[in-house]
Design a protein around this nucleic acid. Sequence first.
RNA 1: UGGGGCGUAGCCAAGUGGCGAAGGCACCGGGUUUUGAUCCCGGCAUUCGUAGGUUCGAGUCCUACCGCCCCAGCCA
Length: 560
Amino acid sequence: MTNTPSEKPLDFIRQIVTEDQESGKHPTPITRFPPEPNGFLHIGHAKSICLNFGIGQEYQGTCHLRFDDTNPSKEEVEYVESIKADVKWLGFDWQDHLYFASDYFEQLYEFAVELIKRGKAYVCDLTGDQIREFRGTLKEPGKNSPFRERSVEENLSLFGQMKDGAFEDGSRVLRAKIDMASPNINMRDPVIYRILKTHHHRTGDSWCIYPMYDYTHCLSDMLEEITHSLCTLEFEDHRPLYDWVLDTLQTPCHPRQIEFARLNLNYTVMSKRKLLQLVEEGHVSGWDDPRMLTISGLRRRGYTPASIRNFCDQIGIGKRESWIDMGVLENSIREDLNEKAARVMGVLEPLKVIIENYPDDLVEEIEAQNHPQKPEMGTRKLPFSKELYIEKSDFLEDPPKKFFRLGPGREVRLRYGYYITCNSYETDPETGQVTLLRCSYDPETKGGTSPDGRKVKGTIHWVSAKHALGCEVRLYDRLFNVPHPDADKSVDFKDHLNPDSSGSLTDCKIEPSLKNITKGTSVQFERQGYFCLDSVDSKPDELVFNRIVTLRDSWAKLKK
RNA sequence: UGGGGCGUAGCCAAGUGGCGAAGGCACCGGGUUUUGAUCCCGGCAUUCGUAGGUUCGAGUCCUACCGCCCCAGCCA
C-alpha cells in the first residue's frame, strides 16, 4: 500500500495491518466477516463488511464470510441466504471462502476434550441460577463450583454423555477452568458448551451440545488462519478469553483480535433485536421496508452499493462511540446519484395549466438533456401541448418578491420549453385551492431562451397533460422523531416512532419516456429529488416510485 | 482503587513531542447556472475534558481529577 500525504490517512486498524505486512509478520492478511444468521444485515454491518472485505482487497489478502451459527434456537437458513445476497450486492466477494462455525463442530468437540485432558475444563452440574450466584458480582469475586475438581476421567465421561444426549437441556455445561476471582467476569470459568436438543439449520439433529461464542470464535479464526479478527468494542473484555483458549490449546496460529466502535446513526435504531421488533409488530412492512436501514431496505429505497461503501469510507474507523448524522448517509446517495441518475420531469402534485394562445391540437417535440453535466448521457424528446401540469407549489396567488416561480402576471421558463406568463387562475370555491392556471406562451422562446435576451428568474418543471403517465410516489421520512430513540431505557423506543415517516402521492404525473423504466432504476425528478422504481409494488401500468432523498433545497431554508 | 475502554469544532475525524491543529458533513458568505440542484471560491478550534508537572518546545510524555460507554446469557 502506498500512502502519500495527500491520501486519506490510515485508520488505526489499517495501520496495524500495514505494519504486519511490512514487517513480514502477515504478508497476506486474512480477515473475516462473521455474522450470526439470526436477522438481516443493516448499515452497521455494512461498516464491518467494508472494513473486513476492504482490507482483504487493499492488502491483496482475503476475507472470509463465516456464519457464526452456534445457537440453533435463533438461526435460520433464510437469514443465511439474505446475508449472502446482501454482501454480494454491496460489491464484495468471498470467492470460495464461505464457512460456517457449524462445520467445525467436530474439531471444536475434540478441542474441548483436549481442554479437559489438560485439566482446563470441567463438567458443571450447577443450575443456571446457581452458576449466576457462584459467579459473584462486578465488585465481588465468585466462588468455585463444587464440581470444579472433578477428575479428568469423570469429566471425559460426562462430556461424552452430554454429547450422546444422556442429559436434559440445561442440566449440565462444560466450563473452562480459569479463575473465579478474576476481575474480568468473562474469565470466571465461562460456559463453553451447553446442552440444546434443538434442530440445527445445517447439522440437523447430529448434535445436542453446542459451543458458546467465546470458545467457538477464536478457534474458528484460528482454523481459518485469520490474521486480524476485527470486532466491536463490547468484545474488548472477551479478548483475554479469546487469547486464553488459543494459548491453553497451544494452537499453531493465534489471530489478533482488534476492536473498533460500532456505527451509530441518529434518528434510527441499529440493534437486530429492535429491528426485528419493528418488523414483527408491523410498524414497518418488513425487513426491506424502504425506511429500514437494513441493507435490503436501503436497496429497495434506492441506495446504491457505491453510496453505502462511500459512506462507510467517510465515517472512518475508531474506538470512540460516535453518532453519525443521518445527513451524512443522505449525502452519500445524493453524491452518487448526482453522477449517475438520468434527469427526468416528474410532477408530484399536479396543477393544470392551459396555454391559451397555443394551438389546440399541436404537439411539439422538445429535446431535453438526460444530464446537463454529462452530454454523453444523451437526450430525449418531450411532448409539449396546450395543456400541461406543473407543480402546485410552483404557483402562489400572492408570491413574495424572492419567489422566482409563477404568480399572477409573472413569467417563468418551462424547462427546455417556452416562457409562459400567468394570465389568470381558478380556485375551488369551497377549499380555496388553486385548480387551474391560464397562461400564454411566447412562441419566440422555444427551448428556453429568448431572442431579446430578457431574463426570467425561475425555471420550473412540467409535463404535457395528455402525454403524461400517472404514477404513485412514496415519500419517506426518518423512522423516529428523536435523535436517540433508545437512549432512555425507561421509555419504549417505539414511543418515538415518527407517525409521518411514510406517505404516498397517488396522482403524480411523469414524462412518457419513463414508460418502460425497469424496477430498481433510479432517476432524478428535476428540482425534486432522486426516485427509484419500487422493486416490489410497481407494475408496468401502475408505476410506484420511492423517493430516495430530496435535492438540497436552499429555497426551503430561505422560507424559514 | 472491581475490570475494560473512550474524551480534538454542532456531527464525524486526522494528528504517533518541533515552527501554521488535515479532511469531510453541517453552517455562513460570494460566483457560475435553463434544476433555488450540481459545480467553483472564501469563512468556520489563539486551542485539543480539567488542573498541575516534565521539556528550549506537549493535543502528543507524567500525575491527579472530571465525564461518558461496556461487562454479572447455558446470546452473539
